[in-house]
């Protein structure tokens, strides 16, 4: 009977201990270990500038990871994340080209107030998220399939959007400085100490998502739905509504990430964001978010993102080939989950 199974699996977990602390926080220890290790071999890795640079590069990825993370906690997934980032980047870039730029996508576009392009791009993300949520909640299409479909659709849409005769599909460049400043500027005293805008924005988003997951009904419901959907339903939680919301929030995050990505790189193409969803899912998973639902923390997601970025950066500094980085990354994903799953596997 279910009760006995549940009982035995519960009892196997046992009480908290030092070992359990280590296993619960294993991924943070791995991050710390990596940083120290690379720092010993190559001290320049530990310079403030380099560390800030790692954080800056991680910012956009972190925002995407937190969007996907909430969805993963509900036992869902979102393969459309990367392409949605790309679509949002294209929209933001197309509406923020300098008035004097030669090959403007919309030649007659006047100088828009700063907020409009941002809103347009984020709205595109919201629409994609809403669509995903509605399909998952009301048509009961598995999230993997739903978002696989939207991934393809969104890429098509982004390509159509940038494909403007007579120009054809081209990279969108020549962005306004006030816009690119969002992604490249910093706050603080130049030449003394300054923090990149991206890090500040990602920090704000992190706080908001943390509060959302831990302090709001929506957040608690997300964990409940992922932990035991039937329990949530019989306790009167509106499962469909909460599912839709979590995909919409995801969409919002991808929209925002797209804006920042365009601002950071000073342009966009329809191939922006390709495979970002896999990086985000991988980061969440090695950060301890369970793909079987109900488990995951913001700190874990961020740690996962940072591990990848530290690895990228560190291996470059150490002069390791980019191809080896790919192999290392893949192995880490598998190893992290293999270790993590020990916590939940019944001992046999």
């Amino acid at each position: 009977m279910g009760n006995t199974d549940f009982a035995s699996s519960l009892k196997k977990l046992g009480p908290a201990s030092a070992k359990e602390f280590a296993s619960k926080n294993a991924i943070m220890l791995v991050l710390a270990g990596l940083v120290i290790l690379i720092g010993i071999v190559q001290p320049s890795f530990l310079s403030i500038d380099n560390l800030l640079n790692i954080l800056r590069i991680s910012s956009v990825r972190a925002i995407i990871a937190m969007g996907v993370g909430g969805i993963l906690i509900t036992r869902g997934t979102d393969l459309s994340a990367g392409r949605t980032v790309g679509l949002a980047a294209c929209i933001a870039a197309s509406l923020t080209q300098r008035p004097d730029y030669v090959s403007k996508m919309f030649p007659d576009l006047p100088l828009l107030p700063f907020i409009l392009p941002v809103l347009a791009a984020v709205s595109a993300g919201l629409v994609v998220g809403l669509f995903n949520g509605l399909v998952v909640a009301f048509l009961n299409v598995p999230p993997f399939i739903t978002t696989l479909g939207t991934m393809v659709i969104v890429y098509g849409a982004a390509s159509l959007y940038v494909d403007r005769p007579p120009r054809g599909a081209q990279p969108i460049g020549g962005l306004r400085e006030d816009f690119t400043n969002l992604g490249t500027g910093s706050v603080g005293l130049p030449d003394v100490f300054s923090i990149p805008n991206l890090i500040i924005l990602a920090a704000i988003v992190t706080v908001i998502i943390w509060v959302m997951l831990n302090k709001t009904r929506l957040g608690k419901n997300i964990y409940a739905i992922g932990g035991n959907p039937e329990a949530a339903a019989v306790s009167g939680v509106n499962v469909k509504k909460n599912l839709i919301l979590v995909y919409v929030i995801g969409g919002f995050m991808y929209g925002l990430a797209g804006v920042l990505l365009a601002a950071r790189s000073g342009g966009a193409t329809n191939n922006y964001g390709q495979m970002y969803e896999l990086d985000a899912i991988a980061a969440c998973v090695i950060g301890g978010v369970s793909t079987s639902g109900g488990i995951g923390t913001v700190a874990g997601m961020l740690t996962g993102v940072l591990i990848f970025e530290v690895l990228n950066n560190g291996l470059v500094i150490l002069g390791v080939s980019a191809y080896w980085q790919q192999i290392a990354k893949g192995l880490i994903i598998i190893a992290a989950v293999a270790v993590d799953i020990r916590k939940y596997l019944a001992k046999r």
Partner: peptide, 10 residues
């Protein structure tokens, strides 16, 4: 409920 409905990791 006959079948217990806890959310384990909460």
């Amino acid at each position: 409920h006959q079948e217990l409905h806890p959310i384990p990791y909460r």
